[in-house]
């Protein structure tokens, strides 16, 4: 299976929304769509899914144009919505049926995902109620009301997001597109979402993910494309991109002020807090020279961590460079 996007472009009048986006996934994995706000990530996703007309470009799944007929797509949109006044159960069954899942199968899958995402109480409230707690003499209408599936507007934002993730996963999609999946989630639910995404990766799914949380992207993604001002400014395999930058970031923790040593060896201090330094070095030799000078001066080194730049750092650097070059 393969997912290929070629030369995707879109203009609104004179304004370019996306220019020449290409991406290729020949094997399962996670491809990250990164970019500043308004860079064109969501536009790209909408064009891939055929929601927006393309000025140019093609999107293929297994060599065929991507459509509802050729590919089972699961999509968690950035703008999340549910019918506010309809029962959640009805909505989930409807979304599943639209994706070709039978009603009976949909109910089974809803049960599974409700359990997995810990939202069973909203879909099947009062299921198997304890007669001691519900009160045996309570009116049937009151009991019926308690066991009715909740409506979307009765749920918190986080729980609504879980329901929306269910709608994306309910058809067991081959291609899963997640636009900012973790935004607005508390740490507990973030971990739950991360675990589910890992499960989907392990199942061999193709994932396209857009996020501003670089740590999340770094955790899952194998490939990235970085957009700025509607253009691709960086693209490729994440590890190779990082490797190309070299090990130039040094985290250092000592027990006294070493500013003089740092300046002497030519490294740049990025930040400093209570003798914990974040330094930018030219390479391994400069870092080793600094370490040698510290040891020679009898300064005890508590932490010495030389690493490649993080995705966050690469992002900020690339976008900054691009903006500067545009301004000049």
């Amino acid at each position: 299976m393969s997912f290929i996007v070629t030369n995707l472009s879109k203009k609104y009048g004179e304004k370019t929304a996306l220019k020449h986006l290409d991406l290729e996934m020949k094997q399962p994995g996670v491809y990250a769509l990164l970019g500043t706000n308004g860079a064109g990530k969501t536009t790209a996703i909408r064009m891939m899914l055929g929601m927006l007309s393309k000025d140019s470009g093609e999107v293929f799944w297994n060599g065929q144009p991507l459509s509802t007929e050729t590919c089972n797509v699961g999509y968690l949109a950035e703008e999340r919505g549910l019918y506010p006044n309809y029962s959640l159960m009805d909505q989930l069954v409807y979304f599943a049926q639209l994706r070709g899942v039978s009603k009976a199968e949909a109910k089974k899958r809803i049960q599974y995902w409700a359990n997995r995402l810990e939202v069973e109480e909203y879909l099947h409230p009062g299921k198997n109620p304890d007669p001691d707690q519900t009160g045996g003499l309570r009116k049937r209408s009151a009991r019926k009301k308690e066991t009715k599936s909740k409506k979307a507007d009765q749920l918190s934002k986080g729980n609504q997001q879980k329901i929306q993730l269910m709608t994306a996963l309910i058809s067991d999609p081959e291609l899963l597109i997640l636009d900012e999946p973790m935004s607005g989630l508390d740490p507990v639910n973030t971990d739950l979402f991360r675990a589910i995404i890992h499960e989907e990766i392990d199942k061999g799914k193709y994932l396209i993910m857009s996020s501003h949380q670089m740590a999340t992207v770094e955790e899952f993604c194998t490939d990235i494309v970085l957009l700025n001002r509607s253009r691709v400014i960086l693209q490729g395999h994440l590890n190779e991109i990082k490797k190309s930058y070299g090990r130039i970031h040094l985290s250092l923790k000592v027990e006294q002020d070493i500013s003089a040593n740092i300046h002497a060896c030519g490294a740049v201090i990025l930040s400093e807090k209570e003798y914990e330094y974040e330094l930018k070095v030219s390479g391994e030799s400069q870092a080793n020279a600094l370490l040698g000078s510290l040891i020679a001066n009898g300064i005890s080194v508590i932490r010495f961590d030389l690493r490649e730049p993080s995705l966050h750092e690469i992002f900020v650097k690339k976008v900054g460079e691009d903006n500067e070059s545009n301004e000049t």
Binding site: R46, L49, T68, V73, Y75, A77, G81, Y83, F95
Partner: peptide, 17 residues
């Protein structure tokens, strides 16, 4: 309008025209 205002359209358009 309800469908558009509820931001549901994107979700639906993955499945139907």
């Amino acid at each position: 309008i309800e469908e558009k205002a509820s931001k549901l359209v994107e979700l639906l358009l993955v499945s139907v025209q």
